[in-house]
Nucleic acid binder design. Structure first.
Lengths: 222, 222
DNA sequence: AATAAAAGTGAGTACTCACTCACTACCGCG
DNA sequence: CGCGGTAGTGAGTGAGTACTCACTTTTATT
């Protein structure tokens, strides 16, 4: 875990305030929500899995939905935070001379986090279409900032002439599709296949760089 | 709609057998499942939306789950069928001389279908994690055949030297991510943005072709 | 027109749901 | 020790839940 992650951890993490039973409730809820979905999971079931009375859940969370939110909200902030928080000049000029460096750093940086939070992210993606507040919360407090920042970053590398001059949103879409597509197949669709992660990331980044290279015509170099 | 699509339509479509009320039930169920999710939708609600008594639903479908299946199963067969059914030699040698032709044909061919079935596909994707039978049905009867066929196709163009010699499954992943990523942003995430579809498909296909071009080093041609 | 099968109905059934509340157990503080 | 506050309990509540069934209406067949 990087220093930034630790900082973010401290900023948003109130897990220290939680009682043992509360932690058990959260763990049980995450387990069940991920396995059967929010709607198909009963509070009784969560209570049993946590080894706790049903009333205890409602002592800490007014409604079942509040329980869902308390799982999902801190995760999405933690997931997006590094992109927003990092000093942009540092990122662009010092740390990552090339767009490829930047992409590789991003993948490295977020991999561990994703790995440890597959279940919560699964819940988040599953439930987003059915809870408008969740979508709004995401768009207003996270999504828009992330996209603004991403646009700055793409623009920077475009001006440096490192990547093709397509509309910025198209570049974001193509880059996002490629990286998210890798993570989804790696951790959601085929998590049990034997992956050579280093090789796959390498292929993926090369593909991305070649695809986004400036100029339309390509010639093999012998 | 192509001739193949019509053929498939006739092969799998039993909509002619359905009564007016049954069609209304299906339409109402699709609407509600897509909007609120399968678990959060009650049969009473579906009946009301369809203007039908609750008992009528269970006259035609033994259980609520059977209703879900009757919506989702024919769709996934129709979605995948063209890839399986088409005469492979015709596809590879006659119709599509280059991999780019093949990709463009695929996007064109499936766009209309996707557009007309967004809701059902949404339901399918939402529910797949929670219904093992659905996943098995998909993998055994559709998934494996599609992947076998896709592997043949990729292999063919690799041997022709048109695309890079990465592991076939990696090529499928990269191609799939790019195309599915386009369709998902186009029809699920930002369906209301004003899209220049022709330009977007063009950028996407170019990106894919450049990314999968043989050889590791790229040089701009002036 | 007679008859049988199929389609449609809606009140009823057993059960589950999220959530409440009166109560007990434990904790730190004087 | 006494007191106040928080944590934990589990039986209880009314509003649903998927599904059934005895019955009526429509449709097809002769």
């Amino acid at each position: 875990m990087t220093k930034e992650d630790q900082m973010i951890e401290e900023m948003f993490n109130h897990e220290g305030d939680l009682t043992e039973r509360q932690k058990k409730i959260l763990a049980a809820a995450i387990e069940s929500f991920a396995e059967k979905g929010y709607s198909a999971t009963s509070t009784k079931e969560i209570a049993q899995k946590a080894g706790v009375a049903e009333g205890t859940i409602f002592r800490h969370y007014k409604t079942k939905k509040e329980l869902l939110m308390s799982i999902v909200t801190p995760m999405m902030i933690k997931l997006m935070a590094p992109i927003i928080i990092k000093d942009i000049n540092k990122v662009l000029n010092h740390d990552h001379e090339t767009f490829e460096d930047f992409i590789r750093a991003m993948i490295d940086n977020r991999r561990k986090f994703l790995k440890n939070n597959v279940k919560i992210i699964k819940i988040f993606i599953q439930e987003i279409p059915f809870h408008p507040e969740l979508k709004e919360q995401f768009m207003e407090h996270v999504g828009s900032k992330v996209f603004t920042r991403l646009r700055q970053i793409i623009d920077h590398y475009q001006e440096k002439g490192q990547i093709i001059n397509l509309p910025i949103d198209t570049v974001i879409r193509l880059t996002g599709s490629t990286i998210i597509g890798y993570f989804v197949t790696r951790y959601a669709i085929l998590p049990d296949a034997d992956w050579d992660d280093e090789a796959e990331v390498d292929s993926t980044v090369r593909f991305l760089m070649k695809g986004l290279a400036p100029g339309g015509v390509i010639r093999r170099v012998h």
